[in-house]
Structures are given as C-alpha cells and as structure tokens.
Design a binder for these strands. Structure first.
Length: 817
DNA sequence: ATATACACGGATCCCCTATTTCC
DNA sequence: GGAAATAGGGGATCCGTGTA
C-alpha cells in the first residue's frame, strides 16, 4: 500500500512496553490518515580518552547487563554499539545504548556510574523530537509512504478502531517527495461567557468559522430567526453541538485567539460543571492542559492553535500595534476591526442587544480565521525550518526555535546533542554578572541637514560567524592562531576551526540573503515568510548563546559577540570620520553622519571600499540618505540624549525613534503634539509653524476643549498589584478597577487620566481617575507633565523657551489655585 | 525559566535638614 | 523653650517602555 502523506500532528503512546508514534496527517486527496511508527530508542555514553580496547569491551559487557526495575516497570539495556562521534566539536568515542522505552533512558543513564564514562547525553530530547530526528518524517513535508493498513486490528490495542480517520497505516518506509499542495482545513472559534474567570460563568454562545462555514450556536434569546445563528436548549446542548460540529468538520487546525488561556480551558471547565465530556480528540479524548508559564491546550489529532502565541514570537517586534488584542492585530494585518459591542452581563442585556452580540461573536471568529490564513505561510515555513510539530512551533519562543534548529541539524556534524542545563546550572547562569554590551554614541543636540546612515547587516549574527564564536570553539587556553578579544578585563580566545553553531548560522544568513533576493525578483507570500523566518532565526542566535536556559549556552561567546561588534563599529566610525564626513550618532550597528558636501555617489563608493576591508561575512549597507535629522538633549543636563532621534528622507518619510511619540505610556495628546512638531520642523527646517501649532493646542487644553480620550494614559500592569514596592499612578488605577470588581491582573494595560482635585495634592497618584469616573482633567498636569516634557527639548534646539509658550503671559494666575 | 545590553524619564521612596506647630 | 510634626530638596530606586 503506497500513498502520499503529509504529517501534521504528532503524539506518542506506549504499547507492550515500547514507544510508538502516532502521526495524524492527510493524503493527497485531503483524506485524514493516521500513521503508526516506532524507532530505535537510545542515548550516548561518551568515553574518557585513551581507553584500551579491553577496558571498553569490559565496559560494554557491564552495560549490556544492566537491568532495572523502576516505577514498577522492568527494563534493560537492549544492545550497545561503539561509535566515533563529535561532542562540542571534539572527536570522542561513544557508546550508543539502546533501550526498550524512552522513559527509561534517564534511569539507565543514572546507573552508569562507571569511571570510564565521561558524560551521558541524548536522553532528554523528548520522544517526538527523538523520533523526528531518527526517522526524518518531518512535519508539513510530503512523503510517499508504504505500510500495512490496520483494519480492525488488535495490534496496538485496537487503536485504529477508536480513531476517526480514513485510514490507519503501520509504516514500513517513507520517501520525501516534491511539494504537493496542502490546503489545511481550518476552523476558527470563539466563545462568549458571563464571567471572565475560567468556568465561573455560563457560556452563552460559541461561534465557528471555516471555509464556507459560519455559525453561532447559542441557547440565549431564541425569539428571532437570524441567518447563521443556531439555537439550542441550554449550555449542555451548546457544548454538545460544538463538539458535534468540530467532529463533523474535522479540521486540521482549530484556531482561537488567546484560546490557550481562555476559550479551551473555559469549555473544558463548563463541560465538567455539566458532567459531560468534551471529546474533541480524534480518539474521543478530551483536551489536555499542560501548565507552563501559560496554560497550553492540546487536542489529540487536531492541532489547537492559539494565534496570539505565534504572533508574540513571530510578529510582535515588527508590529505597530500597542497591544496584541485581536482588535488591534486584525486592524494592522487585515484592515478590519472587531464589531462594536459593549459587553454586559447577560442578565442586563436587552432584547435588541442579543442580535448584536451574536454578530460580534461571529465576527471575532471571522477575524481569527482570516488572521490564520494570513499567517499560515509563516507558520508553515517556521515548522519546516525548525522541524518540530506545528503545535509546538506555534507556541515556542525564538530561543526554543534556535535550539530546535540546532538539534535537527547536528547530524551533519556527527555531533552528539548537549543536555539541557540542570536547575542549579540555570540559577548559576541567571546570577552571572552582566557583560558589557553595545556602544552608543553621544549625539550633539541640534538640527542637521543632508545625512546618511549605514548599518551592519545581521550585525551580531555576522560577528558570530566571522569570529567563530560559540561554546565549542571557545579555547580554554590561548592558541597562536586564534580569534581573540578583550572584554570585562579578560581576554577570550576562539578557535579558527569552524564550529557547528557558527557554521549553521552562516548557512542561515546565506539562505536569508538568497530568499530575500528571490523575493525581490518575484514576490509571493511563501518566499516572504521563508526569508523572514531565516531573518528572525539569525537575529535570535546571539540572544540564544546568552540565554540561561540554552543547551549551547556560552556566556563568553555572547560577551565576545558584543565586544567584537563594538570594536568593529568604532573602527568604522573612525574611518568614516577620517574620510571627511561628520559623525552625528551611532547605536550598536548603525551610524548616522553628515555628508559634508560629498555626493551620494561618492558616499556609495566609499561604502564599497569600507566593505572590502571588513572581515568574514561582515557587511555594511546603506540604510538611507536623509534630508534632515534632529537630536535633542536629555531632560536633565545639557548632554545629548541617546536612543532618541528623528529623520526625514527626500520623499518626506520620517523615521522617529525613542521619542514620546512612539511610547504608549504617554497620553495621545502629548504624542500627537510632539509628532506634529517633529514633522513640521523636519519638513520646514525651522520651528515657526510648530510654535504656532503648540500655542493653539495649549489654548484648547486650557479651555477644556480637548476630549478626555486624548488624555488617557496607558500603562501595563507587569505583575500582581500586591508585588509593587512603589505605588505608582497605574497601580492606583488598577486598585480602583479591582474595587469595582473589574477583571484585572498582570499583563493588563491600565488606562487612567489625571483629574482636578479640590485640595492641593502632592502626588500624581492622588489625582488618578479611571476613564469611566466623573471629573475634569487636570490642566496643570497635562501642560507641565505631558505637553511640556514632550516638546521642551525639541524647541530648545532653536533656543525657544517652551515654558513661556505654555504659560502664556496672561494666564500666569491660573496655576496659583 | 522561555533571547541580550543600553538608555530615557516619570514617579515614588527615603533620608536629611530646615521650618513650623504645638504644648 | 523644647519636642514633635511637617515641608521640601535631592539622590536612589522602582518601573515601564523604548533602541539596537
């Protein structure tokens, strides 16, 4: 029996003491297939150097005789093999120790206290990762597979009988084949409930959106016939119907937004309250929840995706949205928003509200569905590149992704995988001293004309590759021909023999370049996704080597990366300066400078020359030419502020960094005023228009003509209220919300405004009011603590005293209260 | 536990000293 | 007149949010 097959979801099970893998996927006609397979289970014992043949023979004998009786399960070493391998770049002799069950590897490893054995490795990958590494049946790739069809077979305890699939196949062989189309069957869902706390209220309705499928199921307000709305008797029937539809549509992906943290656990909790089963799994099993930093909901055979989690790792750093709410994210990616509806407790909803509520609920699923389609190319490419199941890839952070990539590419280097750090090791790493980081040039405040900006492409990544910086290439003692750098008063040496981590990174950067070029020639979503995934991966490598949880953690490599980068940019700065340009600013990997009368052509030729002198794969590129740029002083003191500047190019496009304009913890009014002031100054080259504009706004503010929404300050609550040592305004606002029994917790964006008070208050927090509270805004506060600080330093460049503009000569008495 | 360091700036905290208030 | 309360100055610290 030969069929074409694409693996989607992986799970493992035990049968007669052995591990098996159950892969759910599709065949080329879109039918659901289950593949059962197994693989050899083993780990590595790395031997000490220079052991005699006899000693090794004896050791093998001893290991072969190991038998264990742990946790009520009898197990033994099945066989052993001697191999020549590499570990951290060094040649080693290692024993491959085979066992019956993956779960026993750790226990067997614990019984290897022989003096001939130096290290034990490869028992902590997880069986699914181990399987993928061993059998190369990679997620979301097409295969031609051969095997035996299980038909009401008692093999594997009759697994095929209880499984809702077209065919169940026991795998014999597989061959990777050229890409076929795979259009996943997607079902988005969203629930509405009365209470936000999991399981506390009743679920009122559930919406489902798939291809040519839209449905709201509800047991509320059943009076009117509405398209797409289906009525049921009560909550229990609602849950039943939901399961029925999911089973009928049988999607590859069940997609929610924040559904790990809300929808799926809520459904599960309500099912329990109604004493029923939520048997969504293809094997009729209920969703399983694993507790991590966030709860994760897994459904057997159907990949449950919480889009929010993927957005957090794959997109958030490049997004404009201030929060990752469905509304803002949909608005940024789809140009569509949630339906307007003010959620109230169902007991307070009027007849006519319900129809709106249903619409609102349905549209959330529509947005989720469309977002998934938009992000599918990225999810697909991430999965193919990391070679881990899409369920995990959609939830993993970038450091985990880097590690997955490394683990799945070790074989080419004949490398034995490093182990995860122990608890003690992690805490030691977390308490290490910080190493010195990037260089930031102190700018001289002012308005500048005709500038250029260069930056290093994949700066830290190219440093790691060019200087071969990694755990396996770090030298314990200096060697003659090596890369060396001084950092933190210590000199570090790295071998010139390419290490596998820098080599992999080199490939990643090369691939990124190639795909970027291909994308430019003929753009499409897949190429864009592929190019982007490699870019993210390359950028995460540096952070990975300095991350305390990493298998290939190397503090020295991370410190050396920063140090080499610092040295490189300082050298380039000097060269640019010597060539007759004037440096204005520099931060980490970018340099802004005045052309000083030189032409663009000259400058580009100079760039070429600079590049020819750079080591390894390091490369400078032109970020752009700019007509004007402004740098300001710090709030305190006269020195120039770092990480704050604004540029305008020839087309009038501005690039604003660090200013309050781009900070969400400033009120919109202050941000807009500052933005407009910056835009006008950059466009005109002087401050006249901007001054006029500010005067107008100040007048409006004093006359209370500014709507309150413009004055809302938003600050995130980063931890539980009780943990705050300093009670700042947003903590007070959060407390107020808590008193009103509004749902509040770590991670929420708190909104408040500063109001007038009768008595003279000293602290800002004493004037905090929630947006819903009555009260006039505090004119003095917004003038002096929001508008003034936002523009004072900008006008200072022109020697304008902003205080005078703001106070106005006639209005002096206003502050005297 | 879920990548790194550098940087800004508001608001509070906290210590000190001077001034005011109270008896 | 002397002790206690209060004000306010200023550096340290907390905190959130940026840049790279």
């Amino acid at each position: 029996m030969k069929i074409k097959f694409i693996p989607v979801d992986y799970s493992s099970f035990d049968w007669q003491g052995r591990n098996y893998i159950k892969i759910i996927g599709r065949n080329d006609s879109g039918k659901r297939i289950c593949v059962i397979d197994s693989c050899p289970v083993y780990f590595w014992a790395i031997l000490k150097e220079n052991l005699s043949k006899e000693k090794i023979e004896k050791l093998l004998d001893k290991i072969n005789q190991i038998q264990l009786d742990t946790k009520g399960r009898k197990t033994k070493v099945e066989k052993t093999e001697l191999h020549d391998k590499n570990f951290l770049g060094k040649k080693v002799r290692a024993i491959k120790i085979f066992a019956t069950n993956y779960k026993d590897l750790h226990d067997i490893a614990d019984h290897l206290g022989f003096p001939e054995i130096e290290l034990r490795r490869g028992y902590d990958l997880g069986f699914i990762t181990h399987y993928i590494l061993e059998k190369k049946l990679l997620p979301l790739n097409w295969y031609e597979i051969e095997g035996e069809v299980l038909n009401n077979s008692f093999e594997f305890g009759g697994i095929d009988m209880g499984l809702d699939v077209e065919q169940c196949i026991k795998l014999k062989s597989s061959k990777k084949i050229k890409l076929e189309k795979f259009i996943p069957n997607v079902l988005a869902y969203d629930i509405e409930a009365d209470e936000l706390k999991i399981g506390e209220g009743e679920i009122l309705m559930i919406s489902l959106v798939g291809k040519n499928f839209k449905k709201v199921i509800t047991w509320k307000n059943q009076n009117k016939k509405i398209p797409n709305v289906e009525y049921v008797k009560d909550e229990a029937e609602l849950l039943e119907k939901f399961v029925e539809y999911v089973r009928k549509i049988s999607p590859d992906f069940l997609v929610g937004y924040f559904s790990d943290g809300f929808d799926l656990p809520y459904l599960r909790a309500r099912a329990e309250k109604n004493s029923m089963r939520l048997n969504l799994g293809l094997d009729e099993s209920q969703p399983k929840f694993t507790r991590g930093i966030t709860i994760t909901g897994k459904i057997n055979g159907i990949v449950h995706i919480d889009l929010l989690r993927f957005i957090q790792t794959a997109y958030s750093q490049y997004m404009q949205s201030e929060t990752l709410s469905l509304n803002e994210v949909a608005s940024e990616f789809l140009g569509d928003t949630k339906k307007e509806f003010k959620i109230k407790h169902s007991s307070q909803l009027k007849e006519k509200d319900w129809e709106k509520y249903f619409e609102y609920n349905l549209h959330d699923s529509v947005l989720t569905y469309q977002l998934f389609q938009k992000m599918w190319p990225d999810l697909l490419e991430f999965t193919k590149i990391m070679q881990e199941p899409v369920f995990d890839v959609s939830r993993n952070g970038m450091s985990k992704n880097v590690e997955s990539y490394i683990l799945h590419n070790l074989e080419r280097f004949n490398e034995i995988p490093e182990k995860r750090p122990t608890h003690d090791e992690i805490s030691k790493r977390r308490h290490r001293e910080k190493y010195e980081g990037a260089f930031v040039f102190e700018p001289i405040p002012g308005l500048y004309e005709n500038l250029a900006m260069f930056d290093f492409t994949s700066s830290y990544g190219s440093v790691i590759v060019s200087y071969n910086l990694s755990k396996s290439t770090l030298l314990t003692k200096p060697e003659k021909d090596s890369y060396s750098i001084e950092t933190g008063g210590k000199k570090l040496y790295f071998s010139k023999k390419p290490g596998f981590v820098p080599e992999m990174l080199k490939e990643i950067i090369e691939k990124r370049k190639k795909f970027k070029k291909e994308l430019k020639q003929k753009p499409d979503a897949i190429k864009r996704a592929r190019s982007n995934a490699f870019k993210l991966l390359a950028n995460a490598y540096y952070g990975y080597q300095g991350f305390f949880g990493a298998r290939y953690y190397c503090e020295e490599a991370a410190a050396a990366t920063a140090a080499f980068a610092k040295k490189s940019i300082k050298e380039v700065i000097e060269k640019i300066d010597k060539a007759g340009y004037k440096i204005v600013y520099s931060d980490t990997d970018s340099i802004a400078f005045l052309l000083n009368g030189k032409s663009k052509k000259q400058t580009l030729e100079f760039l070429k020359k600079l590049n020819s002198q750079l080591p390894g794969i390091m490369e400078l590129e032109l970020e752009g030419f700019f007509k004007r740029g402004i740098w300001v002083t710090k709030r305190t003191g006269k020195i120039g502020a770092k990480k704050k500047y604004a540029l305008i190019d020839e087309k009038g496009k501005t690039k604003i960094r660090g200013f309050e304009t781009v900070r969400r913890d400033w009120c919109n009014l202050a941000r807009q005023v500052q933005n407009k002031v910056i835009q006008q100054i950059l466009k005109e080259g002087n401050e006249k228009e901007a001054v006029k504009y500010v005067k107008e706004i100040v007048k409006k503010l004093k006359n209370r003509e500014i709507p309150k929404e413009q004055l809302i300050i938003k600050t995130q609550l980063k931890k539980p209220i009780s943990e705050y040592k300093a009670i700042s305004p947003h903590v007070i606002a959060a407390k107020k919300m808590q008193e009103k029994e509004l749902p509040i917790g770590a991670g929420n964006l708190i909104e408040y405004f500063i109001a007038e008070t009768k008595s003279k208050k000293k602290l800002v927090r004493e004037m905090v009011k929630l947006p819903t509270e009555k009260g006039e805004y505090n004119i003095k506060y917004y003038l002096e603590r929001q508008i003034l600080p936002a523009i004072e330093n900008i006008f200072q460049v022109f020697n304008i005293n902003t205080k005078e503009i703001i106070e106005g000569k006639k209005q002096m008495t206003l502050w005297e209260f």
